[in-house]
Amino acid sequence: MPTILRSNGYRFFFYSADGDEPAHVHVVKGDCEAKVWLSDGAVALNLGFSARDLREIVRNTREQRDAFLEAWNDYFADRG
């Protein structure tokens, strides 16, 4: 599960088995986890984050989208 960014206590990553799904990132902090689609920044899953946390997560995801997509494509190209 490659970590692609750590920011303000959030860890952005994807699971090695995620390659069959559209590009996305998982985000964890403490006991909370979210999943955000890279195509549009929509939250696909939220397990415990507040609305404020989700706004920060989505903002970070949108700001880093190109780098996240590059990491996704590089990682899964090697496994395809």
Rank of each mutant, 00 (worst) to 15 (best):
G48K: 02
L5Q: 11
W37K: 13
F14S: 04
L69H: 05
A67L: 10
P22L: 03
G30Y: 04
D74M: 05
V36W: 00
A23R: 02
I4T: 12
R6G: 04
E21G: 00
E21S: 11
A44I: 00
R6D: 10
P22I: 09
N46M: 01
H26V: 01
L69Y: 04
A77Y: 04
F76E: 06
W37I: 01
G41S: 05
Y15K: 09
I57A: 06
V58H: 08
D40S: 13
D31A: 15
G41Q: 06
R52E: 15
L38A: 14
G48F: 06
R6C: 13
F13R: 08
W72C: 11
P2A: 09
Y10P: 06
P2Y: 09
G9R: 07
S7I: 08
L45C: 03
F49R: 02
V25F: 10
S39T: 11
V43G: 03
G41R: 03
D20M: 01
D40C: 08
G48H: 00
G80M: 06
A77S: 13
D53C: 08
S16R: 02
Y15R: 08
R6W: 02
A17D: 09
F13S: 14
A23W: 00
G80E: 02
F76K: 01
V25R: 08
E56Y: 06
F49S: 01
L5E: 05
V25W: 10
E70G: 13
Q64N: 15
D66F: 09
A34H: 04
R62S: 14
N73R: 14
L47S: 10
R52T: 14
H26A: 03
F13G: 06
V28L: 09
Y75M: 07
Y10T: 12
D78P: 00
W72N: 07
D74F: 04
D40H: 09
G30K: 05
E70M: 11
V36H: 07
D18Q: 07
W72F: 05
D18I: 03
A71Q: 13
A51Q: 10
K29S: 10
D18W: 03
R55D: 13
Q64A: 15
F76V: 00
F13W: 01
F12S: 14
G48N: 03
I57W: 11
D40E: 14
E21P: 02
V28D: 01
V58L: 10
F14Q: 05
R52F: 03
I4E: 07
S50Q: 00
S50H: 00
S50I: 01
M1L: 09
S50F: 01
L45Y: 04
F13T: 07
W72K: 14
E70V: 07
P2W: 05
A42C: 03
E70T: 13
N46T: 02
